[in-house]
Measured scan of single mutants.
Amino acid sequence: HNLTITQGKLFFHYNPKLCLSEIHKMEEVSGTKGRQERNDIALKTNGDQASCENELLKFSYIRTSFDKILLRWEPYWPPDFRDLLGFMLFYKEAPYQNVTEFDGQDACGSNSWTVVDIDPPLRSNDPKSQNHPGWLMRGLKPWTQYAIFVKTLVTFSDERRTYGAKSDIIYVQTDATNPSVPLDPISVSNSSSQIILKWKPPSDPNGNITHYLVFWERQAEDSELFELDYCLKGLKLPSRTWSPPFESEDSQKHNQSEYEDSAGECCSCPKTDSQILKELEESSFRKTFEDYLHNVVFVPRKTSSGTGAEDPRPSRKRRSLGDVGNVTVAVPTVAAFPNTSSTSVPTSPEEHRPFEKVVNKESLVISGLRHFTGYRIELQACNQDTPEERCSVAAYVSARTMPEAKADDIVGPVTHEIFENNVVHLMWQEPKEPNGLIVLYEVSYRRYGDEELHLCVSRKHFALERGCRLRGLSPGNYSVRIRATSLAGNGSWTEPTYFYVTDYLDVPSNIA
């Protein structure tokens, strides 16, 4: 807008934040220059609390790290170098490059900038070799853009010569660093050979998330399962459950009422301010606690030095998902009996873990797994792929695949051998790939016309006998059925096997 004052003059007093240069501009645009008398524009009460600059400061050096910015700028000295009290560095987070010096300023003089007072450097006698002032900004957020400017702080001049310097606002972004852990990993099994893994992005990506790394490792069953005799009275049979499938998407929606109208769909109840505040506090606490764990609990591995020492970490090797089922080394339970199943799973520490690289999504279907087997899954978020990966501390989750139908069934015939004193040795093959492992066998036998009897055969007993022995049988026709019990439950009964026990007292003698 054009402003013209045809008559009258300007009068400025007691404006401590208004620089004289701005008042002189007002004289020019209003056409009143030359009308004012000496005392109409006070030299001592206008701009006496402001830094009124008329020179431009330029930054000469900028260096960044993930949490620091090192700045240096060209030296500046007023005509009387004693008038320079120091520099004021202003900075704040700036997602967009549209910041002005006066953003967030209120009537009390406060604003949204963080201000650092910096002492002037030592003055050199040689004007050509003056030290460049600077400042190291610490405690910054990774991968965050900051708006920065600097200006001088000078003393009051009796001659009211307006001098000083100020830089333009520059924008500097800190470097990326390792992201925080992925949030809320959930693993479920939808079949006997697959596990579905879902997660949420890290709360602090500290860069642009480029991919996720998912490692999985087959877990050995508890050692007590191999040692305890679950045929003993009072000892509860062990059981394991597989990871249940995901709930429906509708039930997972946030901010939804727990109660549904019987007449149909209901609208979600909005969260109160107290609920939102509580969630923010919980989120802040979780982030602080995660940072504490990362800094205190997890110790970084030592990389190899120039002395030739090897990095103890196993090298990563990509495998196809079809090879995942046989990740671990199978060892027989008892070496003397080769027909026992290889369900003991000690994992070799030198073995390469299978892994998958996930790009542009937060889910993965891990296939080719062994049925009813526990897996430990390790999830890392990465925001750099080359020249070397920059990934987060791992988040861990466990899951067990679903049982395989008929995996616990005894394959092959049940054979028998009759000894003296009416002892019958029953023999059968253990299931080759049971659900988890076989903890015991149930032997059901009966003599024709009598009630059915049951015998429990422990895992250890089966390994020693290759089956079991029935003792003290009365003469007669017998039928026997056997079924295995694994961590997933009972298998199917075998087809009945028949044998006849004679009275050993009636056996004919070869003595003449």
Rank of each mutant, 00 (worst) to 15 (best):
S458E: 10
E495R: 09
G306E: 09
D229P: 09
R376W: 09
V411R: 15
V334Y: 09
V424K: 01
C231S: 03
V345Y: 12
D204L: 10
N422C: 06
V501C: 12
K233P: 14
R319S: 11
L426I: 01
Y375C: 01
T373G: 06
E452D: 12
S262M: 13
R240T: 13
K317P: 07
P431V: 05
G467K: 07
K278W: 08
E258L: 14
S479D: 02
K361C: 09
G234D: 11
D261V: 15
S509M: 07
C456V: 02
E227P: 11
Y445Q: 02
Y375W: 01
S363T: 11
A336Q: 03
Y396D: 01
G306P: 14
S444P: 00
V324D: 05
H371L: 09
A484R: 00
L505D: 09
F419E: 00
C266K: 12
L453A: 02
D291M: 14
D503K: 12
L213T: 15
N360W: 14
E356C: 11
G306A: 06
A399H: 13
S344N: 06
E420F: 12
F499K: 01
E290M: 11
V423A: 13
L225P: 05
T502E: 15
C266G: 15
P332V: 06
E247T: 08
L369G: 02
Y498Q: 07
N422S: 14
E265F: 10
D323R: 11
R286L: 06
Q429Y: 09
R471I: 10
L369A: 03
S315P: 10
R471F: 15
N510S: 08
T502S: 07
T241L: 04
R240P: 14
S367H: 05
L228Y: 14
C266P: 04
P244Q: 12
D311F: 15
Q219N: 08
R319T: 09
E227A: 07
R301L: 10
T401A: 03
S203G: 10
E310V: 03
E265D: 14
H371W: 08
S251N: 09
V214H: 00
P354Y: 15
P349E: 00
G476E: 01
F215Y: 10
G467D: 01
P300A: 10
C269I: 13
D250P: 12
T303I: 09
L232Q: 10
Q252M: 03
I366D: 00
V501W: 02
S344G: 04
P434W: 01
S274A: 04
V397P: 07
N208Q: 15
P434L: 01
C468D: 01
N295T: 08
E433S: 13
I418H: 04
E351K: 14
E420W: 04
P270A: 10
K432S: 14
F499P: 01
K302V: 06
D222L: 11
L505V: 08
D323P: 08
N206R: 03
E227L: 11
Y396G: 12
P346V: 14
Y478T: 01
P312N: 05
S398E: 04
E281L: 11
Q429L: 10
T401D: 00
E227N: 12
Y375S: 00
D229A: 11
S342W: 02
P270S: 08
T485C: 15
H294E: 04
C267R: 00
D311T: 14
D229I: 10
T272K: 02
G374L: 09
T303Q: 10
C266W: 13
R471M: 06
W216R: 08
T497H: 08
E281I: 15
W428F: 04
D261F: 08
R318H: 12
K302H: 14
R459F: 08
Y448C: 10
T288H: 05
P354S: 11
F419V: 06
T494D: 00
T340L: 09
S305N: 13
Y500K: 12
S243R: 11
P314R: 15
Q219T: 11
W493R: 03
T485W: 09
T347L: 13
S305T: 13
V365A: 14
Q429S: 15
P300F: 14
G476F: 00
S268I: 11
F298R: 13
L277C: 02
T272V: 10
T343E: 09
I511F: 15
A488Q: 06
Y292I: 05
E420D: 11
R313L: 05
L487E: 03
C269R: 09
N421P: 15
S305A: 10
H254I: 09
V393M: 11
G436Y: 01
C269K: 03
Y259A: 11
R481N: 05
H425A: 14
E351Q: 04
E281D: 07
E279Q: 08
A263N: 15
N490L: 07
G207T: 03
L280A: 15
R446S: 02
P354R: 11
G467W: 02
S304F: 15
T494L: 02
